[in-house]
């Protein structure tokens, strides 16, 4: 099966000459449909750069970035923006909602920008809000919501329109443990329903929700957890 996201030998260099910084050094990485992949590493290891490049927000210095088979690197700016609206959902630590718009309007916005009729966009937005468990808050403004509720809106905005790649950069960073787990549950459910997810986090207990955990150091993938299970415990659960 072709991966939803594929990075092939991606390098990202910031600056030139003596001030050159190699954020990514030839990274190859893939996320398949139905799979949630966590990326861990200390600050400066390149994990956020990897996510911004995967989301088309930044361009690699070398290498290919394919989302559902389309190489983002070869696209013009407008086409790349279109990919971001139709195929890629982004969830940030700081939620990044538009304060002047209600929850439903925030979620409908990417669909409207994509030319979907206002009414259809709104219906889709309400469905997405229902999926994340806050249909009753559709007419609230971000300032009148808790952090956990705002992040749910952000997730609804990231998944609206059946986008198949969800990229989350420390999505639980600003939330307490329990609220954070609720957000991970949503990401997990979305991936179980067929999306591919990439979760950047420095918290082991959050990364543990993923199918695979990739470890970055100095812009290189140094390791990755396999699919070995803890034997006795898994037997019990499967019994």
């Amino acid at each position: 099966m072709n991966p939803v996201l594929q990075l092939a030998d991606v390098t990202r260099v910031h600056g030139t000459g003596a001030g050159e910084v190699h954020a990514l050094r030839g990274i190859s990485f893939a996320a398949h449909a139905g799979e949630l992949v966590a990326v861990m590493g200390p600050s400066g290891s390149g994990k956020s750069t990897l996510l911004t490049i995967a989301g088309g927000l930044d361009q690699p210095t070398a290498g290919a970035v394919r989302v559902e088979g389309t190489d983002l690197v070869g696209l013009g700016q407008q086409e790349r923006a279109r990919m971001r609206r139709t195929s890629i959902g982004y969830v940030f630590q700081g939620f990044n909602l538009i304060p002047a718009l209600t929850a439903a309007e925030n979620v409908a916005l990417p669909r409207e920008l994509d030319g979907v009729p206002v009414r259809t966009a709104r219906e889709e937005a309400l469905r997405a809000l229902e999926e994340v468990g806050i249909a009753d808050l559709a007419e609230r403004f971000p300032d009148d919501m808790s952090g956990g509720q705002q992040q749910r809106v952000a997730i609804a905005r990231a998944v609206v329109g059946e986008r198949r790649l969800i990229l989350a950069d420390e999505p639980t960073g600003a939330l307490d443990t329990e609220t954070g787990e609720g957000i991970l549950e949503l990401l997990r459910a979305r991936c179980d329903a067929g999306a591919a997810g990439v979760l950047v986090t420095h918290e082991a207990r959050h990364a543990a929700w993923a199918d695979r955990v990739v470890f970055l150091r100095d812009g290189v993938v140094v390791d990755e957890t396999g699919t070995d299970r803890v034997e006795g415990l898994t037997e019990r659960a499967d019994a």
């Binding site: 861990m40 997990r188 082991a204 207990r205 990364a207 543990a208 929700w209 993923a210 199918d211 955990v213 470890f215 140094v222 390791d223 990755e224 957890t225 396999g226 070995d228 299970r229 803890v230 415990l233 898994t234 659960a237």
Partner: peptide, 19 residues
């Protein structure tokens, strides 16, 4: 790193069982 991967894999299992 090898230990971190192994412990992480166990943590993934525990999390799956918790779910």
């Amino acid at each position: 790193q090898q230990q971190r991967s192994a412990t992480m894999a166990s943590l993934q299992d525990y999390t799956r069982l918790k779910r």
